[in-house]
């Protein structure tokens, strides 16, 4: 018996999910951040964020098709974290690192928070 592992399968699946997002195929929720709107797949959001996992496993909230985030959330920070969820790449612009980290805290993305902490400490002169 043999087993063939396609080592790039996970990244290929994620790329296709991101293609579906950009074509708005089977997206099932709109995330409202201040005045900006982001379409996404609930399952991807739940897989990446503790906050969305809690929201969409709540039987009263899982059928919602629009979620407004706290007004303190920075739309640019959220956009970068949503891109990370669908690409595994976290873009860290100097001017946005705190917004990204605070948004990751809000979204309960602890591993991203830890990584941002380490990045900030390592880049402190």
């Amino acid at each position: 018996d043999s087993c063939i592992q396609f080592t790039r399968h996970a990244s290929d699946v994620l790329l296709n999910l991101n293609r579906l997002r950009s074509r708005d195929i089977l997206t099932d929720v709109t995330i409202l951040v201040s005045r900006q709107q982001f379409r996404a797949h609930k399952t991807v959001l739940m897989a990446c964020s503790g906050l969305f996992y809690t929201i969409f496993t709540d039987s009263l909230k899982c059928s919602l098709n629009a979620i407004s985030l706290d007004p303190k959330v920075d739309p640019e920070g959220f956009a970068i974290l949503l891109e990370f969820m669908y690409t595994s790449r976290l873009t860290l612009k100097e001017s946005l690192i705190m917004a990204i980290m605070n948004t990751a805290i809000y979204l309960q993305m602890d591993h991203v928070v830890d990584t941002c902490h380490r990045f900030i400490k390592s880049s402190d002169p």
């Binding site: 739940m46 897989a47 964020s49 496993t57 591993h111 990584t115």
Partner: peptide
């Protein structure tokens, strides 16, 4: 992502969804 300094993070990136609640 050309021209951007890319740092490879080998650690866990996201939470793990429990097998059951």
């Amino acid at each position: 992502y050309e021209g951007v300094n890319t740092i490879k993070e080998m650690g866990r990136s996201i939470h793990e969804i429990p097998r059951q609640e």
